[in-house]
Each structure stands twice: as structure tokens, then as C-alpha cells.
Amino acid sequence: MVLDLFVNFCILFTFAMLLFWVARQQKRTKFPLLRKFPGYSIGLISGVFGVVLMLKSIHVGSAIIIDGRMVVLALSGLFGGPVAPIIAGTIMGMARILVNEITWPAIIAGTNTIIIGLIIGLVARRIPITFQNAWKYFAYTTIQTVLVIGSLSFANEFVAGRGAVFILYSVISFAIVYVTLLKMDQLSREVEQIEQHSSTDYLTGIPNNRKFEERFYNWRQERERFHLAVLDIDYFKRVNDTYGHPTGDLVLVELADRLKRTTTSFGGEVARIGGEEFGVLLSATTTHHALEQAELLRKSVDSIRFQLPEGLELRVTVSIGVACYPDDAEAMPDLYKKADERLYDAKLGGRNSVRISS
């Protein structure tokens, strides 16, 4: 029995690690079903794994099989939301009834699994399952299962002491898996924070040049045509020399926020490339629309009035150069060079203007 329990636990542990990975990859996955319907997908995956656990279960008497499906139910709600345990519970419950000989104990156990999945799903709609409260949901599944086991034991369908093995195995399995996942979640969040810091500009909070290049290559894979704009604050050195670097930092922060809100309005993306220079991915596919979006950026900056101490007011402008992918270039360095050349033309033309490759 010990070897069989170990095999069942290994399957359960593998499922937990797989589910953790799937949940973390939801936004990055190329599978449309998982990306659009994560709860249904995770519920289906959980249900299938629950059936596998039952097929590899340990039979104790004629009324009970020992496996980790109750752990699966709790984890499905943790990673898939309210709908996942309902789907998983239904699949596992029906399988519990049909997988072996159809008996009253099997019907009772299967119905119990379905009911547990349904209740977990309904409660999770109001109280989402998290790493902090997942153990409470598992405790509920354990208590209800104990009551069912007690009723079967009272009907003399199996020895109560054997039923305790099922409960003990479930509790120990959940504890090991839960602690492991909790630690993995903490490490995953730390890694995400490190990645975010490495791809975010420390001053403005918008993406930095590294992240901007990554987004450019993503756009190149997803779109046939778009534009790259390079913005530079006019006479920014004068701002620092006249009002000091704290004021210069204030200008950069507020300007970045305005650019972010403006680019979001037309589906673009902005990043601070360095110093007083910003890069913007324009969703426009035609020269005319790209010019409109770039002008929208220029005007949004031109409308900002920075309030300084002693009632002073500061106004800044930007010059913008725009190049088209793939007409002007396909590689990021080459396209940036083209946009930078147009930016130089805007500077020579008097600043506070837009120049675009035709």
C-alpha cells in the first residue's frame, strides 16, 4: 500500500507543478482556449488529472478508494477561479461513479465530489481562493468527506479505520503540495519584481529601453505594419541648468505620464529610451494616421503647464521623428536610426514639430 500511495502522490505532485506553471503562463500562452477561457481549461485539466488519480488509486474494502482528488479540487479553484472546481468536481464525480463497478458507495462518493466542487465554486465567487485561504477550502472538503465516510462506515460498508487512511493521506498530501506551491509562489513573485525593475525606468515608472526593444519585436511578430516615433524634449538642458535637476525630474515624470495616457488612447506603447528621449510604438499603419498620432503626442505635451515655486509656470515642447516598419527598415536599430534622422530634421526645422519618413 505504501508504494501505491507514493505513486499516487507523485502523480498529484506532478499535477500541482503543472497547474502552477499553466496558471503562470496564461497571459503568454499561444493556446487560444487557455488564454481566453483559463477557468474552463484549468477545470478540464484538473478533472482529467483527478480521473488519472482515481485510476491509480488504492482500493480499501468495497466502499472507498484512496487518492488525492480532494486536493485537486482545492487547487483547481486556486488557479482557475470559481468555475474550475465546478468542472473538475463534475468530471471526477461522474468518473468516481462509473470508473469501477456502480455501487451505492460509489454513487455516494461521486455525488459528494460533485457537491464539493459546486459549493467551492459558488463560495469562491464571493471569496476568491488564494494562497492565504486555500487551506480553508481544503478543510471544508475534508470535513464533508469525513461525514460521508462516517455514513458509509455506519452502513458497515468498510472499516472506519481504513477510511481514516484516506483522510490522513489527503491531509498530508495537501500539506506538502501547499507548502511547496506557497514557496514557489513567493519565489515567482520575487522573480517578477526583479524582471519588472530590470525593464522599468527607475524615475518615470514606464518601460525602459530594454523593455521597449522586447515590445518592438513582439509587435513585429504580431503586425504587418506600424510606425516608430522618437521624441526628444526641446532645450531640456536649459531646464536643468535654470531650475535644477529636481525640476527636470519632475518634468520627466509628468511628461512620461502624459505620453503614457495619450499612447494608450490609440493603442500605442511608450518607453523612456534615455535622458530626455522617449520612444513610442504607433499603431497607425498609414503615413497619414501616423502623423496624426505623433501630432497628438506633441500637442499633449505642449498643453502641459508645470507649476513651479513662487508662482512660476514652465512649458516644454518636444520634437518628434517617425519611421515606418517595414518600409523604412525591419531591424530595430535601423528603424530607430531612420526615426532619429527625422527627429534631427524636426530640430533643424525649429523644434516643437513632427517629421515623418514619406
Rank of each mutant, 00 (worst) to 15 (best):
I206P: 07
M184V: 01
A63G: 15
S265D: 12
L282Q: 06
F158E: 08
F306A: 04
I119F: 13
R96Q: 08
I108G: 02
L348E: 15
S300N: 06
L3H: 04
K136R: 13
I119A: 07
A88T: 00
G349A: 15
D185Q: 13
A256C: 12
S76Q: 01
R238S: 10
N133A: 11
G205Q: 09
A109K: 02
I149D: 04
M332N: 00
V171P: 10
H245W: 07
V148N: 04
G47Q: 00
I108Q: 00
R125D: 05
V316K: 08
P128Y: 13
V159E: 01
F166E: 01
P207D: 04
R351A: 14
D328F: 09
E341G: 14
I64F: 11
S358K: 12
A290E: 01
A294F: 02
I273C: 05
I97K: 06
S173C: 09
Q144C: 06
D241C: 10
L168M: 14
F49T: 06
L18K: 11
E292G: 09
F306C: 05
R238M: 09
W135Q: 09
E330C: 03
R215T: 01
T317P: 13
R315K: 15
G89C: 00
L187W: 02
D327V: 14
E292R: 12
S76P: 04
F158R: 10
T103F: 02
Q132V: 13
R223P: 10
N112E: 05
F13C: 08
A329C: 05
Y140R: 02
G163W: 03
K260W: 06
V177K: 02
S300F: 01
N156P: 02
P326S: 06
V48H: 07
F49G: 06
L44R: 00
K136S: 12
Q144G: 02
L312C: 12
